[in-house]
Simulated scan of single mutants.
Amino acid sequence: MGRPREFDEEQVVEAALEVFWRHGYEGASLTDLTEAMGITRPSLYATFGSKEGLFQKALERYGQKHLAFSAEALRAPAVRDAVEQWLLGFADAHTAPDQPAGCLGVNAAIACGEASEPVRQEALRFRRAGEVALARRLEQARAEGELPPDSSPTELARFVMTVCQGMAVQATAGTSRAALRRVAQMALTCLPLSPKGRRAARAG
């Protein structure tokens, strides 16, 4: 039997997450990662298989811990409230004072070279999953009459996610939370609510 692990996997993934978030995937060296995680390279490879495998674990952890607000936002009864909570949640997540600025998925994928294409694709799949979930909520709103029949949930979800990704880039450049929250509120005015949707928003 092999020797038992001498570290808490959740803790080392959390440490790796911050390194990837701060430096991007390619900018995070194995030395940076192992020093932050407090483990050796052999232990990293034995546990996660590769740097890419470690990044996948970190990305999963990022979604569970830092983007948990998004699932809650989609449960809001009124679609306007759902989109508002989604946008403001991303503005806040990108600018939390106790963590790196911006979005792990955006930061990790933005400077990936050809050798890291699988990682870029993984980050894109991660972001698309959020877009699909938002589109489903908007489809529900259209079916329930909160959005006009001729509105496109898919295009609206893409618009909202484009704003969220833009806010991530702005946050990385130092834009304040207050400024990004104003951007979120401006984007919200583009949501094409029906009369029923406006009534539901006021009631909420």
Rank of each mutant, 00 (worst) to 15 (best):
L180H: 11
M167A: 10
R198A: 10
M161D: 15
D32K: 06
A93R: 11
R137I: 08
V79D: 10
Q56I: 02
G63N: 11
R158H: 14
A184V: 05
S151E: 04
A76S: 14
L188C: 05
V119W: 00
A201S: 13
A28I: 08
L44A: 05
P100C: 13
Q64K: 13
A46P: 00
D32S: 10
E146C: 00
R198G: 00
L30R: 12
A68D: 09
T172K: 13
P42V: 02
G53C: 00
T162M: 07
L44Y: 03
G197P: 00
L88Y: 01
L134C: 08
T95H: 10
V183H: 06
L180Y: 13
A28P: 01
A201E: 05
Q140S: 07
A203V: 00
A46Q: 09
S194K: 03
S29E: 11
A135T: 03
F7A: 00
P42S: 03
D92G: 08
Y45N: 06
P149K: 04
A36D: 13
E9P: 01
M161P: 06
F7L: 00
P149V: 04
S50N: 03
T47V: 04
P195T: 07
S176R: 10
S194T: 08
E122A: 15
G63P: 02
G2L: 08
A93S: 15
F55A: 01
E117R: 13
D150T: 11
L124D: 13
A68S: 15
S70R: 13
L54Q: 03
A96S: 13
I110D: 09
D8P: 03
M186V: 09
C103S: 15
E139H: 11
G49W: 02
E84L: 15
L44Q: 04
G24A: 14
A36Y: 07
A173H: 10
P149G: 01
E117N: 06
W21R: 11
E72S: 14
P153V: 00
S152M: 09
E114H: 12
E26P: 01
C190H: 06
Q121V: 06
R128C: 03
R22W: 04
T47P: 03
S29G: 14
E117M: 12
G166W: 07
E139F: 03
S194Y: 02
L138R: 06
Y45G: 00
P4F: 09
Y62S: 11
S43A: 15
F69G: 06
G130P: 14
A16I: 07
Q99K: 15
F126D: 03
P195Y: 02
E35M: 13
A68R: 12
L191D: 07
R120G: 11
V83A: 12
A108R: 05
A76T: 06
E139W: 05
V183M: 05
V163H: 06
A184N: 06
P118V: 02
A187L: 09
A143W: 02
A168M: 08
A73V: 09
R137V: 08
D150E: 14
F69D: 08
S50Q: 06
S152P: 08
A157L: 05
A115K: 11
R128V: 11
L191T: 03
